[in-house]
Amino acid sequence: MADATPAAEAPAIKKGSLVRVNRQAYGNSLEAQASDAAAPDYIFEGPAEVLLIKGDYAQLRFRRPVPDVWLRSSQLELFPG
């Protein structure tokens, strides 16, 4: 019997999820153009916790003494582990 869930479908990112930023998706984005030329490595290493989701954006809190940030959900991937 075939599985009803398509293999290409990624798990949904929701409040409380641990995520990291996808370097390729972020690199060509409007958010990257509006920020420093080089993004800090910790955003790509993760994890960050999703605090809130509004529309296409997620508010992230990293486990570092840095401010929370808003990024597009399409630029995020679930943190492995």
Rank of each mutant, 00 (worst) to 15 (best):
Q75T: 07
I13P: 03
S35N: 11
A7P: 06
E77C: 08
L51S: 03
G81T: 05
E49V: 07
A38Y: 07
V66W: 12
K15H: 10
R72N: 06
E45F: 02
V21D: 00
G81W: 04
A12V: 12
V66M: 10
R20K: 15
A7R: 15
D3P: 03
D41I: 09
Y26N: 10
A10T: 14
K14L: 09
S74T: 09
Q24R: 14
L52H: 12
Y42L: 04
K54D: 11
S17L: 08
Q24I: 05
I13N: 07
L52N: 05
A39D: 03
L18Q: 03
S74G: 04
W70R: 13
R20D: 01
I53A: 03
N28Y: 12
Y42N: 00
N28S: 12
A2R: 14
F62H: 05
P11E: 07
L76G: 00
K54Y: 08
K54H: 08
A37M: 12
E31P: 00
E31H: 11
Y42M: 02
R23L: 06
I43V: 12
L51C: 07
R61N: 04
L52S: 02
P67S: 10
P65S: 08
F62Y: 11
A2I: 11
A2N: 08
S17M: 07
P40D: 04
A37F: 10
A2S: 11
E77V: 13
E77M: 13
A4S: 11
W70F: 15
R63Y: 12
Y26F: 14
R20W: 03
T5R: 13
E9M: 13
A7F: 09
E77D: 13
D3T: 15
A4N: 11
V66Q: 07
Q24T: 14
G55P: 04
R63N: 10
L18K: 13
A32W: 00
P80N: 06
A8W: 15
I53N: 02
D36Q: 04
E31T: 13
L18H: 06
I13K: 08
N22G: 00
V50T: 02
Q33S: 10
F62W: 07
A10S: 14
E9F: 14
L71M: 12
A2Q: 15
